[in-house]
Amino acid sequence: MKSAQSRIKSISNAKYGYLFIIPFVLVYLIFHFYPTIYTTVLGFTDCKGLNNTEWNLLKGNIFANYQSILQNKSFQTAVKNTIVIWIMNFIPQITLAMLLTAWFTARRITVKGQGIFKVIFYMPNIITAATIAILFHALFSYPTGPVNDLLTKRLGILEGSYNFFISKTASKIIVAFIQFWTWYGYTMIILISGVLGINPDIYEAADIDGANGVQIFFRITIPNLKTVLLFTLVTSLIGGLNMFDIPKLYLNGGPDNSTKTASVFIYEQAFSGKYLYNRASAASMLMFIVIAICSAILFYLMRDKDAAALAKLKKQERKAAAQRAKSQSWR
């Protein structure tokens, strides 16, 4: 069918393909590509100081900014924090989103009122991160605040108030939780969209084979979600490694740098204190490299596993078909 479609299109239409991508390409080049190059160049210059836009390429050691960033303990901590917080948020997030997707797209045991649940679950995502950060800061206040109020006076679990703002672990967990809480609904909706796009025939075939819900989910739904899952993973990874609003506004990267993410670090270097644009640019490029490597790994892992799973599935299908044919002929 696909090849038939391609044949319908005449070659003369190719120019419209180019025409239609012009806005995207133009804006991309001006507002995204050029600034990226600019940032890359700044990383090799002496550009720093309040509102300074003049710069010279570094003489002597051209990698001086990169060296100073790589040796910067706060940057190392920030990169580690970013990855740790992302993992702490993403694993529960994707697990929960998958579970909800399985429930909401289940064909035998339908969930009543799933519309209202979907709307509610996506709601945390529509709120400005600034609002969420202030809200959670107020919720976890010490010594008096809603959560401490609940733990001590209302439920009596704790003797005295717990200082959530001084504990590095608690702060990380709270930031990760906020991220999880904000994004699980979004992830769920993307995944549901992906499942709805899977050809119903496949499911019917599985039903005929007598596969149960769990089998269908793992053998059919997940392998067929490949592209969408990859999309979710990559966008979440990028979003996660660029995490800025919540850590910045919740505790300003503290306590003791425990929630300082790479983006918060870059912002602090570039837009406060001594305005070290050059060092911040170098840090940005390093982050880009980290993200590119992580994404490449994801692409690689997903492709391999998927291909393998698909191959296995096809083999099973063939086997099943052969068996069916066999049993039929036997009968």
Partner: peptide, 9 residues
């Protein structure tokens, strides 16, 4: 000391 050096050079 590290924090000040990292942030403000």
């Amino acid at each position: 000391k590290q924090a000040v050096s990292d942030k403000l050079a």
